[in-house]
């Protein structure tokens, strides 16, 4: 298990470092929000899920997409705006999707996918499937009314959903305590009678263990929802590849404990050098191939502007 978690963390970190490196060349011509520093949440959660489980995420979605098994080549091609991207280049970094892998889409409008996860969970219950749905969102999203409306309905119907709040303390440049009277998101979930936990230290093993237990229970006892507030930290600027500790809204000293607690380094130290190097080697090859794939793919054909606005004429049969 350790090596799987390590691979997932390493892969996401390295993919995003490559994105950051390439960004200055303007090959990626759209807003891109990196998860560097926060990978442990997506990895801990998604590794605890089955491949048939489903996640909904946010514009800061690379980690969630990759951790859940989204196709790396199609993601990089999407960032490049190529026709081979997961959304044919029409979405970009903020609109990743891989239905086959159970990544149901990320949105640029904060909070908008939370109720979708609830609706998906409702459909799973209706169809008597044992799929568990995860909704990822940030600490800013809980300020939107739709978050509370979604929690209320999910709790009311005891739906098979796990809410995961990735609390990195900031919404763009505004600290949580400049936006909310207290840092107690976990408490709000409890008022809806949703069993909720707050994980303070980005501990990937603990997140994995807790989510696994929660998913098992939801499946065996039909006892959703569950809620996790995962404290974490964004290392890069809100949007884009740069560092921003010189911009005055947060200090590097605040970040230092998070750097020291880097989960990638932690797992690295727990694995033998051979395993580590094998994984690194394999991942580097995969990443190089993905960027190569994006580079060599074509931009969408002009006719693509008009495709996918509507579906094809429906076959009116019950599915």
């Amino acid at each position: 298990m350790l090596d799987k978690l390590y691979r997932a963390l390493y892969r996401i970190r390295r993919v995003e470092e490559e994105i950051a490196r390439i960004y200055s060349t303007d090959k990626i011509k759209s807003p891109t929000h990196l998860s560097i520093g926060q990978e442990a949440v997506a990895v801990g959660v998604c590794e605890a899920l089955r491949s048939t489980d489903v996640v909904f995420g946010t514009y800061r979605g690379h980690a969630c997409y990759l951790a859940k098994g989204g196709d790396l080549r199609k993601m990089i091609a999407e960032l490049y705006g190529k026709g081979t991207g997961c959304a044919k280049g029409k979405g970009g970094s903020m609109h990743l999707i891989d239905v086959r892998a159970g990544v149901m889409g990320t949105s640029a409008v904060v909070g908008t996918t939370i109720p979708h996860a609830v609706g998906y969970a409702y459909a799973m219950r209706l169809r008597r499937q044992d799929t568990v749905v995860v909704s990822f969102f940030g600490d800013g999203a809980i300020e939107e009314g739709v978050f509370h409306e979604s929690m209320n309905f999910a709790a009311l119907r005891r739906l098979p959903i796990i809410f995961v709040c990735e609390n990195n303390s900031y919404a763009i440049h505004a600290h949580q305590l400049a936006r909310q009277p207290a840092s107690n998101i976990v408490e709000r979930a409890r008022t809806y009678l949703i069993p909720a936990e707050r994980i303070e230290d980005n501990d990937v093993l603990r997140i994995y263990g807790l989510v696994k237990a929660a998913a098992d229970e939801i499946r065996s006892k039909q006892s959703g929802p569950r809620f996790f507030e995962c404290m974490t930290y964004r290392w890069k600027e809100h949007v884009g590849p740069g560092d921003d500790f010189d911009r005055g809204y947060r200090s590097i000293s605040e970040a230092q404990p998070w750097f020291a607690n880097d989960q990638l380094k932690r797992l690295e130290s727990l694995l033998g050098p051979q395993v580590r190097e094998r994984i690194m080697g394999e991942v580097e090859v995969e990443i190089a191939q993905a960027f190569q794939f994006a580079e060599s793919s074509s931009f969408p054909a002009e006719e693509e502007l008009y495709t996918d606005v509507f579906g094809e004429a429906a076959q009116w049969t019950a599915s």
């Binding site: 029409k90 969408p300 502007l305």
Partner: peptide, 16 residues
């Protein structure tokens, strides 16, 4: 605008 949602990729955006 072209009668479609706005595409992100630049070559289609230019047509939009």
């Amino acid at each position: 605008f072209a009668p479609v949602p706005c595409p992100t990729t630049k070559n289609l955006e230019n047509l939009f």
